[in-house]
């Protein structure tokens, strides 16, 4: 009887350890996958832009809108991180599901210090769906590696701690100045 209990306890402990190790090793990541080809966004001036423009950098693409309260709540943190991590290779890009004039009117008040693009709801929902946002909600972010792989995606707001952890885990270590 004691042996059976020993076996059961050992199995439970081992199963928990196996699962725990997996989750520890993979925390905060999804399997990297290539960026869908040919995704085209528009600048506020109407000029076309593609994600390949920022190849060589760690790119955080944050879809937002002026009518989206959680998006507006998240942006000051992105502004701070763009300043803090630019020298280490982070580039934030903010495609807005919005009218260019509405977006322009918010750039100053929000102090946005990274490129902002815009597009109609239909075109942006299509692009976001190709990037893995099935429900089509905002804010929606994807992290793209310097060689164009999607490293992570997030529907909904990041907390500041989550953002720092995510960015730090994919940037080269800081060098002493």
């Amino acid at each position: 009887m004691r042996s059976i209990i020993l076996i059961v306890v050992a199995c439970i402990i081992a199963a928990a350890a196996g699962y725990g190790f997996y989750r520890y090793a993979h925390e905060g990541t999804v399997a990297a996958e290539p960026l869908p080809a040919g995704l085209q966004l528009s600048g506020l001036d109407g000029k076309p832009h593609g994600f390949e423009e920022w190849r060589g950098k760690l790119v955080l693409v944050n879809f937002w809108a002026t009518w989206c309260t959680p998006c507006l709540h998240e942006i000051p943190e992105l502004v701070k991180l763009q300043k803090q991590y630019a020298a280490r290779g982070l580039q934030i890009v903010g495609p807005a599901v919005d009218d260019p004039d509405a977006v322009r009117s918010m750039l100053g008040p929000l102090g946005i210090n990274y490129p902002v693009l815009s597009g109609t709801p239909d075109s942006m929902i299509d692009i976001m769906e190709k990037l893995g946002n099935g429900p089509g909600g905002l804010p929606f972010s994807i992290l793209i590696s310097p060689d164009g792989l999607i490293l992570d995606r997030q529907l909904g707001e990041f907390t500041p701690a989550q953002l720092i952890k995510l960015i730090e885990s994919h940037l080269p270590p800081a060098t002493a100045q």
Partner: peptide, 24 residues
């Protein structure tokens, strides 16, 4: 026990457990 640990890790990798969608 070793078998259980392996199975558990594999189940996690294959999405048997609730998966996270990004970090939050």
């Amino acid at each position: 026990a070793m078998g259980a640990a392996l199975l558990s890790g594999t189940a996690a990798a294959d999405g048997f457990w609730p998966k996270k969608d990004g970090v939050a």
